[in-house]
Design a protein around this nucleic acid. Structure first.
Lengths: 159, 159
DNA sequence: CGACTCATGTCAGTATTCTGACATACACTG
DNA sequence: CAGTGTATGTCAGAATACTGACATGAGTCG
């Protein structure tokens, strides 16, 4: 219906489909993380720290696609509840390297298993080859989008 | 670094890449829509109405990946500012069919052109074949994710 | 060395979106 | 026909994330 020149055909738009897929993934993740009392951003932060210990607040923010202000309050909560630790004084500059505590690691293990089940489900029905193709295609999109976007600085980037 | 069994390797995770791509797309869209005083949700709503006139509040919400409450306040604003119209009384049931006004259509035209430029940029460097592959792959992901998710009802679904 | 630029951590306020709840309307069923 | 289940529109409050702003530390350049 309609298809009248003006506008973008949502039925065939890769952008729309990308948003739909991302939305579905987020919903699925929230669903499995809720029983663990964890949000997606919360989980992302822990996962990032497991793989790259010592990341600073700002680096975590970029990795989790939120502002550094948002990540800051999250880190303060996680620190207060004993999931992560940060030195009182920065070893250099202003950046505070953050690390998981044993408790944080334990908490992440459950969450990670839950999220893995979602990712597995998402990849079900795709061949190894298709997954590689998807990987390359998504990377290409990201690259193209960020190219003409010198606003890669300036504090604003999320969501 | 690290890769210690526990956790998901973000460097090679399709889920993470999907989120990154979606984030980049959103940023790029916000960037071109801001000069027009329009948000992504705002634009999505108008685009949906152009292609499927008469959509109800709830249907628009699902199409724009927000809750029907969020779409409701947006529609009230758009209606007050003369971009869309809704009948005072529902023709059947409770659903109010929404339509673009000429003003809404004009506004959409600019936004649509802006968004198209982003989508074009995103697709740059991808062959026709790759685009088809991406389409199929994304649809497959969406389908798989929604399959084991009977929570397709119940008011909650976004973001 | 001093000026400039840039990245960071953090506080405060604003904006956006969601969750909860209620009333209503229709379809189906026994 | 009464009862049940599902979908809708809407109001109000809560949660979440963002924008703005400031101070600080490090690197660069004249």
């Amino acid at each position: 219906m309609s298809r009248d020149g003006v506008g973008i055909d949502l039925e065939t738009s890769l952008g729309y489909l990308l948003k739909e897929a991302s939305s579905a993934l987020r919903v699925a993740m929230e669903e499995v993380l809720r029983p663990l009392g964890m949000s997606v951003t919360h989980y992302s932060c822990l996962e990032l720290l497991a793989q790259r210990p010592g990341l600073s607040n700002s680096e975590l923010a970029r990795g989790a696609f939120v502002t550094r202000q948002t990540m800051n309050v999250l880190l303060q909560n996680l620190e207060r509840e004993g999931y992560v630790t940060r030195p009182a004084k920065p070893p250099a500059g202003k950046a505070l390297p953050t690390r998981l505590t044993p408790r944080g690691r334990r908490s992440l293990e459950q969450a990670s298993a839950a999220v893995r089940s979602v990712e597995t489900r998402m990849l079900a029905g795709m061949t190894e080859t298709e997954q590689s193709a998807a990987f390359g295609i998504l990377q290409s999109m990201i690259l193209s989008l960020k190219k003409g976007d010198p606003a890669a600085d300036g504090d604003a980037a999320p969501r």
